[in-house]
């Protein structure tokens, strides 16, 4: 389903010391530093897998997700999702994927959520019957019936996240990218979101790729873990592989980060 081979992406970042003088200096002469966000990343993911993509901040998680979802073009490497190269056939590619950015909303702020959904129906050219079937299913499983008529700005974060997830699934994507879907959610909402993702994967066979810092997400959802650090894949295996004893999952991961020095 997803094939990634030797993906590389470098960003040029301006650097300067703190202080006003340095800021003035930087105006005229700037020093650049090259950050290898992705330094030869390869993995493959089968249909219907649920993969937790983890790593410390700045490890290259988001860059990978952005390349897979057609937002970024890598410097080199091969990447296909369902046989298509995302950045080359962007429009055909994005029809088959759903993306949730936990920190960014895709809903229209000032109008009821249902209006955003209706707009997405047009954007993805979803046939009327498919749309109403998906909408009623999502409304039921995510318990949206009471909140879809409320403007997005008046929803709580947990309610909004449920709507975000519904919005990215209206067009029946085969692959779902979740970038920190539980960030900032309370315990009840977290459980609801996790439960839903799990059911979606089981009932629809949706391939799920999940980035998160919340290790309980991983524990609850991901049968497979890919650990990335400094732009390289450090580990690719199951949760049981990395776990040695009865210790807490957070400790296990912190131990891993230390071991790989990332």
């Amino acid at each position: 389903m997803i094939e990634v081979k030797d993906l590389r992406k470098t960003f040029k970042v301006a650097r300067r010391e703190a202080g006003f003088g340095e800021a003035v200096k930087a105006l005229f002469h700037r020093e650049y530093e090259y950050i290898h966000a992705l330094d030869g990343v390869s993995f493959s993911i089968r249909d219907g897998e649920m993969v937790g993509y983890i790593g410390p901040n700045g490890a290259g998680k988001s860059s990978t997700i952005k390349i897979l979802s057609g937002i970024l073009t890598p410097d080199s490497g091969i990447c296909t999702v369902g046989g298509r190269t995302p950045w080359k056939e962007r429009r055909a590619h994005v029809k088959g994927i759903g993306v949730v950015f936990g920190q960014r909303s895709q809903l229209w702020w000032d109008v009821p959520v249902i209006d955003s959904f209706e707009l997405l129906k047009e954007i993805y050219s979803i046939p009327g019957s498919v749309y109403s079937k998906n909408l009623s299913e999502l409304t039921e499983t995510l318990d949206l019936s009471k909140i879809v008529k409320t403007p997005a700005r008046q929803l709580s974060l947990g309610q909004r996240m449920r709507c975000e997830i519904a919005a990215s699934l209206l067009h029946d994507p085969k692959v779902l990218f979740l970038d920190e879907p539980t960030i900032g959610l309370d315990a009840v909402s977290k459980l609801a979101v996790r439960d839903f993702i799990k059911r979606r994967n089981q009932d629809h066979g949706t391939t799920v790729i999940l980035t998160t810092h919340d290790m309980q997400d991983i524990e609850a959802l991901a049968s497979r873990i890919i650990l990335i650090g400094k732009g390289k894949i450090l580990l690719d295996g199951t949760l049981d592989d990395i776990r040695r004893g009865g210790e807490h999952i957070d400790e296990t991961v912190a131990e891993l980060y230390k071991k790989f020095d990332v």
Binding site: S69, R90, R91, A92, V94, V99, I123, Y124
Partner: peptide
Amino acid sequence: NGQFDRILCRPR
């Protein structure tokens, strides 16, 4: 604010 990222994720 990342709105353009979202635009690139849409088939239009």
